[in-house]
């Protein structure tokens, strides 16, 4: 189990967090095409290497946070 650095609580087991995945910018709902919207819903870069992702400290301070994680080595760092 990897450690996630929480800005409030320090490094904690990933099991305390809910995984939020890659943050994807929300398109403007008034102008977004179906393709844009479905890209926002479903398409992720899924890179092998450094990626930015969101975690929610569900069992802790309830903060949503953003970290960078290397999906190959599981190294984690602050963005």
């Amino acid at each position: 189990m990897i450690l996630i650095p929480c800005p409030w609580c320090g490094s904690r087991d990933a099991g305390e967090f809910a995984y939020g995945g890659e943050p994807t910018p929300r398109p403007d709902p008034r102008t977004a095409t179906r393709e844009q919207w479905r890209g926002y819903l479903y398409l992720r870069n899924n890179v092998a290497g450094w990626t930015t992702e969101r975690w929610y400290h569900r069992m802790g301070c309830r903060r949503y946070l953003t970290v960078q994680r290397n999906t190959v080595t599981n190294e984690v760092r602050q963005p």
Partner: peptide
């Protein structure tokens, strides 16, 4: 609860 927090904190 998590949903509410998510919209308030991230968006």
């Amino acid at each position: 609860w998590e949903w509410v927090e998510s919209w308030l904190q991230t968006e």
